[in-house]
């Protein structure tokens, strides 16, 4: 495969120049509700990339890779998709009782390089790396695996959509993410490629940053079993993110950067 040729040659060199590609902004989805009752239930979801949570201030979220899984495992279509200046939006009809998982999972390779002195960005699959011109200079490559999720439940919460795929970072609900209330311990387990994701750090940030002087983020570290436990003092919508980094197995010398993010609603008891 071309990737191999590429890997054997150029990648050894670019290994030296791999730099951290900082994620200055946060990508998120914000559902209108996570706990729903009634026979005719819908949620509308906003998606954006921004600094502050949850404000529309930078870019709309690209919805190309959006997947919606029903409680019985059916793929559900997002309806009324629209993209505005600062946010994207779509609706989901919850025809089944139980928990829906809304997900964007992006896997691939980011490359930054210069062509004739001009900075260029490239995104694609690892086996498409040969699309990068041989003349590219200052090539920096990193493999990326980003998963972003939102959960919404009509009726009683269900667990069928949490079956791990074994790819990237995944959440296993020891506490169901649509059953979060203040003052009760919440426990999640995280997997990295299907195995317990031990020693990862993450954050939880409550909405409404604009109306307080401190971000008040809750720092998380997974234990040896990939588990975290947290007790929420304040109800609200929380943005959760965990990150991991390891050597790439598909691009020699490159790093593989993984992230898991979710928007979680904590209700008052």
């Amino acid at each position: 495969m071309n990737m191999k040729r590429f890997g054997a040659g150029a990648l050894l060199v670019l290994g030296m120049s791999l730099a951290t590609v900082a994620q200055a902004h946060r990508a998120w989805m914000l559902p209108s509700a996570t706990v729903l009752s009634g026979d005719n239930a819908w949620v509308t979801v906003d998606g954006a990339v921004s600094n502050s949570l949850f404000y529309f201030e930078y870019h709309p979220l690209q919805l190309d890779s959006l997947q919606i899984l029903s409680p019985s495992g059916e793929a559900v279509d997002a309806q009324n998709r629209a993209k505005g200046r600062f946010r994207s939006t779509f609706d989901v009809e919850l025809k089944e009782e139980g928990t829906y998982t809304l997900q964007m999972h992006r896997q691939g390779v980011f490359a930054f390089f210069k062509m004739d002195g001009k900075p260029t960005r490239w995104w694609g699959r690892a086996d498409e790396l040969d699309q990068i011109p041989v003349a590219a200079q200052d090539l920096r490559v990193s493999e990326v695996d980003r998963r972003m999720q939102v959960f919404v439940t009509r009726g009683a919460p269900t667990n069928a959509t949490f079956m791990p795929s074994g790819q990237g970072l995944e959440l296993v609900p020891l506490t169901h993410p649509n059953d979060l209330v203040t003052a009760e311990p919440v426990r999640f387990k995280f997997l990295l490629d299907g195995k317990p994701a031990a020693g990862l750090s993450g954050v939880l940030i409550r909405d409404g940053i604009r109306y307080r002087d401190r971000v008040d983020e809750i720092a998380l570290t997974t234990d040896g079993g990939g588990k975290v436990e947290v007790i929420f003092d304040e109800p609200g919508m929380y943005w959760l993110e965990l990150e991991a980094e390891q050597p790439s197995q598909v691009v020699e010398g490159a790093k593989r950067r993984l992230s898991y993010s979710a928007t979680l609603e904590v209700l008052p008891l």
């Binding site: 009752s37 009683a156 059953d179 209330v181």
Partner: peptide, 22 residues
Amino acid sequence: KNNEGTKWLKDLRLWWRRSGRQ
């Protein structure tokens, strides 16, 4: 009509969590 009044039952927050949703 259509049992639509059930839409707000989740606002009985504690009851919904302890019993209603089942």
